[in-house]
Write a protein that binds this DNA or RNA. Structure first.
Lengths: 236, 236
DNA sequence: CGCTATGTTGATCCATATCAATAAGTGTGG
DNA sequence: CCACACTTATTGATATGGATCAACATAGCG
């Protein structure tokens, strides 16, 4: 381990839901082997298949998780503060299933997987937090899979926009968080198809200008998108 | 609760990886509110959206998990002994994201979700087992999603067959565990397309006769399917 | 101010869905 | 044991969503 985590970072980490309720000495144990690092954009943090040495926690910035096979690549998810990523690999001590790369300049905490596993065994509250986080991740992927298997690409885009709208406090207009090329991959389509899909949503009051989205008539779009909490509620 | 679990079922449950290491009194607590029931085939156990009152554990038989939206339906997974299902909903005390139905006559243990959550808080070993199971489930869905997004339907079928072959101790011939209609849905395609996909694999030594599959030249099929542990290893 | 990556648009192609007809099981009751 | 209904599987014909290829536009960025 290069260096331990500077104590100045402790409060930030300590405030995370994941660590909020744990005992002081356990927290100290975790922090001893950990560190926080700031990465520039477009840095590969993890390559799928690597052994899972660290639990990563994103504090600021954004990270994309992607996978590839046989020369093809797809975006699996984007991770934004404050959450962990690749927790399951850490728990199971198994290889990462996805690669991770910074999108923007990002501050990331790295905690040795070995420590996470051992503290899990001794600290109830930490264990509780870990399992809640993991269950959340699981449910997210299940929803994502339902989205993929049950909807056309146009429907996926429509519902994605409605979810984004919700994340922006139901604002009439907002900015896409993702570059379109990546959004296309995330939604399981090509950039060309995404371009056309945006056009296809014009009749439902979707206006696009670069990364700027305006949904003039939300009800209209919802009538088409038919969102359901069992797929689109990104909280539960 | 209808009736508590008959003590005759205790040893079966106790032997499960999930309960093997837990303390006797905690185990007794869990069992008090639980019961084991045998269901005929084609019985709906769970409807997506329902509150998650019970953790289900399949002891014998088989169960399919499916989801639907807007009149469409898809098979998400099949569950075989011995494993839990819909663990994440129990943990989060959130609605089920998938429906569950028996395929065959099945023996299933039902444990009140509330008890699972409270015992989790007091029994280390149980907590450890729960989190391992959950991490396993999570990784399975991620693999499944990679399969869907990165492969064509022909490639998905080819790799599915190779995985089945592995589950049958690398036997040259074996029976499909799933009716073809359902397999198609699981693989994200129509029955018609599956029929044609089987034909499309003939050049690689795949012979189909009803549910009977014979893979004459495994290397040949693998050269086409390009399986990878990061998608196809159903264990880690 | 070009250079390079990203986005758009059009033309075409292809994988897969859909529709339709037939065949093959599977189970039921007579 | 057979006739019947009913579901599932196959096969062919066709339609279509989405991919691919190509050209051009645009926007960051050094």
């Amino acid at each position: 381990m290069l260096i331990g985590m500077p104590e100045s970072d402790y409060p930030d980490i300590r405030g995370l839901h994941l660590f909020a309720d744990m005992a002081d000495d356990q927290f100290a144990t975790l922090m001893r082997g950990s560190y926080v690092q700031t990465f520039p954009p477009q840095i590969n943090l993890i390559v799928e298949g690597d052994p899972s040495d660290f639990l990563h926690i994103i504090l600021t910035g954004s990270v994309v998780l992607s996978s590839s096979w046989n020369g093809r690549e797809t975006t699996m998810a984007t991770v934004r503060p404050i959450s962990t990523f690749i927790l399951a690999a850490t728990i199971k001590d198994a290889p990462y299933l996805m690669s991770a790369k910074t999108l923007e300049k990002s501050r990331i905490a790295l905690i040795p997987s070995q420590d996470v596993r051992s503290v899990f065994d001794t600290d109830h509250n930490f264990a509780r937090a870990i399992v809640t986080e993991l269950a959340q991740c699981y449910r997210s992927v299940v929803k994502s899979q339902k989205d993929l298997k049950l909807r056309t690409s146009l429907e996926r885009l429509a519902n994605y926009l409605l979810r984004q709208r919700q994340k922006h406090d139901d604002a009439v207009a907002f900015e896409l968080q993702l570059e379109k090329r990546r959004l296309a991959s995330f939604l399981g389509m090509t950039p060309e198809n995404l371009s056309r899909a945006f056009k296809g949503l014009q009749p439902y009051g979707v206006e696009v200008n670069g990364n700027h989205i305006r949904i003039s008539d939300c009800d209209d779009l919802e009538k088409f998108a038919k969102p359901t909490p069992l797929i689109d509620d990104f909280r539960s």
